[in-house]
Nucleic acid binder design. Sequence first.
RNA 1: GUGGGUGUAGCUCAAUGGCAGAGCAUCUGAUUGUGGUUCAGAGGGUUGUGGGUUCGAGCCCCAUCAUCCACC
Length: 369
Amino acid sequence: MTFEFELLATDGNARAGVFHTPHGDIPTPVFAPVGTVASVKAVPPRDLVELNASLILSNTYHLHLRPGDELIRDMGGLHRFMAWDRPILTDSGGFQVFSLTKINKIDEDGVTFKSHIDGRQLRFTPEVSMQIQENLGADIIMCFDQCPPPTDRAVVENAVRRTHAWAQRCREAHSDDSVQALFGIVQGGIFPDLREESATFLQTLDFPGYAIGGLAVGETKPEMYATLDHTLPALPQNKPRYLMGVGDPDDLPEAVMRGIDIFDCVAPTRVARHGSALTPYGRINMRNREHARDDQPLDVTCDCYTCKTFSRAYLRHLVHAKELLAHQLLSVHNIRFLIRHMENMRQAIFDGNFKDYADSFLNRYLQRL
RNA sequence: GUGGGUGUAGCUCAAUGGCAGAGCAUCUGAUUGUGGUUCAGAGGGUUGUGGGUUCGAGCCCCAUCAUCCACC
């Protein structure tokens, strides 16, 4: 079986494993940097390899609009197009249709919306999303789902029902998991019974992996953690679990501790472009004056090119001068910071001291001593 | 030397004789399946200087300094 998930060790509910794909193995738990438009912003694939990234995420909606999924197919597929030969995951476009386009109309069959680029009217259905994702050729592809605000029960109930119907149609449209693995997406907002119901239903479709969607979209962190507590026991042990769009450095151990294997988040690259750096002692704003004459690296414990080479004073200068190099250097560090964080957690699970690592990291990162 | 213009926040500039403001810059904060965006807040003034008129002057009058332009 191409997409085998091997569970190698557990520590409490935390899991260390390997997910095998046609483009290589993904050691889990894993953090995937986001390259929405077939580019991890400001970071070339050569550097991603150096950062030890084993999975990146790209996006159906954006690539369909530009340059077009058929063009990418004709250029040899997404891996060849963007010169990244390791595993790729594509999101289904469900989230973007709702978050990016104000004008959208949803019905039982799909969603009609307007392009945020040129305003032309488009329509996504589960079958369209599957076709686009097959054209792109990522290793892991996602079901077309509906991601609602998580706290309005009536809205969430409806989204769960529709997400299930669409999951079934995605499953039928993509029946062969030998080249691309189709993951199901659990919805249900912050409601435990809906989450359990969703997790249970999706298993009847026998996906090679399961994602938890609809979190980190406005609920509080305690609500998100509680939802994970209720959802994860309802998912199978022998399949990877993917928490979509998370997260902050403190969210990662909280979720791994509860049994999540895969993460993606725009945070490391976005906060980099906004001039901030992730460190063991919290996120710091490199615009701030306190760094103006600081000859120390961002993070003395970090092994990335940025930290091994440049001072905080220089990085602050680049941020103030709005130099492109600031985006590149801070993105390199922030991605490496999260990937190393995952590597540390994986090792701690093998060593049986995950809780110690998590407590120590969280106390330092959240400055609660 | 003569005539004219201009002096207001770090910069560029607003402000009927009636509470001295904006943009940029500076400083601080926000951003979770990416619109390199945007938003929120803060600090910052002896209105060149000295007189005068007026209930009240950034604004009117006099002097002075600085600066720019034109002409000797």
